[in-house]
Simulated scan of single mutants.
Amino acid sequence: MGVACGVGAGAMWGMVFLAPKATPDASPALMAAGRYIAYGLIAAMLVAPRWRRLTALLTGEAWRALVLLSVLGNLLYYALLVVAVHWAGVSASALIVGMVPVVVALWGLREPGAAPLKRIAPALVLAVIAVVLIGHEASQGEAGGEGARPLWTSLMGLGCAVAALVSWSAYAVFNSRWLDRLPDVSAHDWSLLTGVVTGGLSLGLAVLVLFDPPQWAIGDWGLFVGVSAAVAFGASIVGNAFWNRASRLLPMTLMGQMIVFETLFALAYGFLLARRGPSLLEGLAVVLMVASVLLSVRAHGPELEAER
């Protein structure tokens, strides 16, 4: 069930990469504001019937944790990723941020239920090779498409990519710990509370965007609102609920591998949109990603319990 929820989260999160294609004229800041404000509004409506009961279970420390998780997993991560893509390029950014499964797995080695490094090492190695192959393929597509960047710009972009990697990895670890600390709050309700806080924080971003709003027709604004609502509900509401449920069912060393499914579904959706199949390297990367997950699941199987 935990792995199935991880797959569900990846399927929902992979759709995020389609949103810019649907609204290509929207700036990254506007896309983020639209998605997260919609996330907050939908979450507030869904959690309203249980608001008093849930808030009675939360301490001041829990509210501060929700603010931190909203920043780490949503606002800060997205901002760093956008800057990294602009300053260092898509391939370099994807290569670094694609290491999230490895970092989360290594970070969780001391968590309860974790498999020892020697058991998960083969899965991590396959995941790294898969990400390198995807990065190489992306770099071939980028070659010649972008002008040379100044060295300091590239270095700043790479630094932002590394910071995005740390930000989301920290979110995954801290979110899992807080779910363990609050057993009376369901995984879905924790996702909704995170959405309410994220939506509130996003209002500041919306104010900045409104200083220079796009000159769109009513139909363009309608499309933008529809896409924002769809991404907010699918990726943030449903996807995060799946992820939180998986976080309660799986050890952190296995949760790291679940992030691979976001990449797999993003690739699949991209192929469908482009009406093409994967290249040889892309196909090999997909096979290696699936193999890394299977090896990681096996590393946490009955043999591990026997060793204990």
Rank of each mutant, 00 (worst) to 15 (best):
A115S: 02
A115P: 13
A115G: 06
L117E: 13
K118W: 13
R119H: 08
I120L: 01
A121G: 05
P122T: 00
L124H: 05
L124D: 13
V125P: 05
V125Y: 00
V125H: 08
L126K: 03
A127S: 15
A127R: 06
V128L: 06
A130W: 09
A130D: 10
V132K: 04
V132S: 03
H136K: 13
E137I: 04
A138T: 07
A138M: 15
A138F: 14
A138P: 00
S139R: 00
Q140P: 02
Q140N: 06
G141N: 01
A143Q: 15
G144K: 10
G144A: 01
G145P: 10
G145V: 06
E146A: 01
E146N: 12
G147V: 07
R149P: 14
P150D: 04
L151R: 11
W152G: 07
T153L: 14
T153C: 03
T153V: 06
M156R: 10
L158S: 03
L158Q: 04
L158E: 04
L158V: 09
L158N: 12
G159R: 02
G159D: 02
G159N: 12
C160E: 14
A161W: 09
A161T: 08
A161N: 07
A163P: 14
A163G: 13
L165A: 07
V166F: 15
V166N: 04
S167L: 11
S167G: 12
W168D: 03
W168Q: 14
W168A: 01
S169V: 02
A170I: 08
Y171V: 04
Y171G: 04
A172C: 14
V173N: 02
F174G: 00
F174V: 14
N175C: 15
S176M: 12
W178M: 14
D180K: 15
D180N: 13
D180I: 03
L182F: 07
L182Q: 13
P183N: 10
P183S: 05
D184F: 01
D184Q: 13
V185H: 07
H188Q: 12
H188C: 14
D189E: 07
D189K: 00
D189H: 03
S191N: 13
S191A: 07
S191P: 11
T194V: 06
G195Q: 02
T198F: 10
G199M: 12
G199N: 14
G200W: 00
G200V: 08
G200P: 06
G200L: 06
L201S: 02
S202R: 10
L205H: 08
A206T: 10
V209Y: 08
L210W: 05
F211I: 15
F211N: 14
D212C: 06
P214V: 07
Q215I: 09
W216T: 09
W216Q: 12
A217S: 15
